[in-house]
Design a protein around this nucleic acid. Sequence first.
DNA 1: CACGAAAGGTCCGGAAAGGGACCTTTGCCG
DNA 2: CGGCAAAGGTCCCTTTCCGGACCTTTCGTG
Lengths: 240, 240
Amino acid sequence: MGDPALVTHLPSAILRQTPGNPFETTVEQLATAIRLGVFFDGDQLPPERELAERMGVARGTLRDAIAALRDAGLVTTRRGRGGGSVVTYTAPAPGSGGPVRRGATLLDALDFRRVVEPGAAWLAATRDLSGDQRAWLETCLRETTEAVDPGAHRLADSRLHLAVATVSGSPMLIEAVTRAQAALGELLTAIPVLRKNIQHSHDQHRAVVAAILTGAADDARTAMEEHCDATSALLRGLIG
Amino acid sequence: MGDPALVTHLPSAILRQTPGNPFETTVEQLATAIRLGVFFDGDQLPPERELAERMGVARGTLRDAIAALRDAGLVTTRRGRGGGSVVTYTAPAPGSGGPVRRGATLLDALDFRRVVEPGAAWLAATRDLSGDQRAWLETCLRETTEAVDPGAHRLADSRLHLAVATVSGSPMLIEAVTRAQAALGELLTAIPVLRKNIQHSHDQHRAVVAAILTGAADDARTAMEEHCDATSALLRGLIG
DNA sequence: CACGAAAGGTCCGGAAAGGGACCTTTGCCG
DNA sequence: CGGCAAAGGTCCCTTTCCGGACCTTTCGTG
């Protein structure tokens, strides 16, 4: 890509930037989780102590991060027993927000997604899924069809994709899919939602889930590839 | 997987641990780069100031990391003009070291690798590669066939895989492949090297590179999948 | 031979993060 | 109504990290 002159040696390609400081990383991660629908609106975050431990960060740092989310209006916090931070976020209507920046990064994310999401679908289909997992996939699928307003639809869509990755059972793949979605997050909120697109998207989702549930790994992958290609074409149009 | 009871909801699956402190991350990254053959034996690391900037870390932290590598015998450092840290590492003979731990993590890495490496090969084949890149791939391929001692062979193998990922042009994929290789690193040094296995591996490498160079994306992916499956079968035997 | 440049080596002060103890609020339940 | 437990809120101390300035070694070159 447009990177520093099409590298032909490894070191410059491999040595990656150590991720930003814990505070920013934590804010980013929580905000992403919320914007991706991992936490529903009205849902409650885990207690600070527990969340801090799970994220491998000191409670003070986590608290600062939550404070930032509060300032951004993503959560509200109540104290006392049964208290905590509840998510107050409804996805914005698509089309708002200016044109999109950081072209190279986004193209990268599209390529990456087109590899890992079909891979996750394939792997999920090879697994022997539990009843809970099968039901979960179907629930997520149904919710994408039931969501009416565009913002809610996008959240349900994200959740479905993450659910597929989750039932693949590979933590590394889960993380990869999460990162791809997070990198595209901006763009996805900007995607124009046309009746026809959504219908098409639904059909592809159904095909993916059906293939996973019947263990048709190659079909699952192919279906997900088509799905990624379809949205990719839409999104590339927005970049320019 | 043996994970905490087959998750059927997102939060516990998504919220990932913030990676360790900068120091440990830096040590790990450099050590991995060396063990994966990103830096050759006798090769010189970039100057501290430059390396620190590229890795997004303060020079003090980088220096501590290099000191750790020095203690581990991976590099030696000379001062003065033209000085710096040179890599002093020859890959250990396979079969040394005890049996392998952390089964779940390794199985995860195998699954992940089987997704991202073929994906990288596929993407690389869709690119319009420069002459340099084509030559680079062929060089890496040739070096895997020329390496005689097993350790050197493994380094050349890693380099070839990373080179494929690099010419895919997707930074996120490069990182993913690097992580997969790093997670498997331990195992790969333990792989028993049989004449027949190596020959088979060479054939597959050749097929992958040939497909990439001719732009046969699906062939490249299939060939890489077969390659991953073959090594995966070998490695699973070591885990038990 | 002297100078200068390119490296590593050292030091310091401020900011961030970690870790833990303790306080305060709130709701539930006996 | 009183106590208990589960949450968030505050504080303090230590360690690590950052960032920059400066020193020392070494080599090339005029």
